[in-house]
Nucleic acid binder design. Structure first.
Lengths: 109, 109
DNA sequence: TCCTATCCATAGATAATCTATATATCGGCC
DNA sequence: GGCCGATATATAGATTATCTATGGATAGGA
């Protein structure tokens, strides 16, 4: 019963920042968005998500605001800050760099 | 001074197995091979490498044998086992799956 | 009224990696 | 002869990120 990881470690912050770059969203919505866009391959557990959002807040990459959802529920909406957008750019290019490098190692040539 | 990780967490075992799938090699040689193939992007620290090799040994994915190198030094050569080859296949396809999923989340569409 | 989906959050365990250190030998150079 | 860089293995300890397991609360539909 080979247990599959829910996501690639080290990529969660990037995925969250990218999701928020599309539009401000609350935690639960971020998790749903990632799950759906990835065709259920990536699952963000609450125990990973909320600590991650705390990290991002502390780093100043996102800001948070309590609001009502369209379905009339209270939720904490996160918005990307200017430095957050910059950080997203950094993480995207670093990820690209890593993936390219791994691809070279995995090549058979 | 944004500290760059030496590699993507969760990919080390796969990189080692892939390297050994080309030819048996000793630890130091594995690290060098990965570093060179990746154009110095991926660096496998000793403190990551040797524990990883212990994991792989314990799992039965590799076997080890003390030998002399071409330069006449003693070194422990690791060889992929049959289950190791199978495991490599699993890890490659799981990695592919993850990367594809992440790619979908990162798309702008 | 009950159930499911929506929403937040934390504690504790686990796993993987990095930093730092220790040891040893070979070969080349001064 | 002595030093140094590259080769080679290994472990302890810290750090970080993730997962498991909870807990609580509310809206809306059956």
């Amino acid at each position: 019963m080979a247990k599959r990881p829910d996501l690639l470690p080290g990529t969660l912050d990037m995925l969250i920042l990218k999701t928020l770059n599309r539009a401000p969203l609350h935690g639960y919505g971020i998790a749903l968005s990632i799950k759906r866009l990835s065709d259920d391959v990536l699952t963000v557990e609450e125990g990973s998500l909320y600590p991650a959002l705390q990290r991002l807040l502390l780093a100043g990459w996102v800001k948070a605001e309590w609001k009502q959802t369209e379905t009339n529920r209270r939720a904490r909406y996160y918005t990307l800050t200017a430095t957050g957008r910059k950080q997203l750019g950094l993480e995207l290019s670093e990820f690209e760099r890593m993936i390219t490098a791994i691809g070279r190692v995995l090549q058979d040539a």
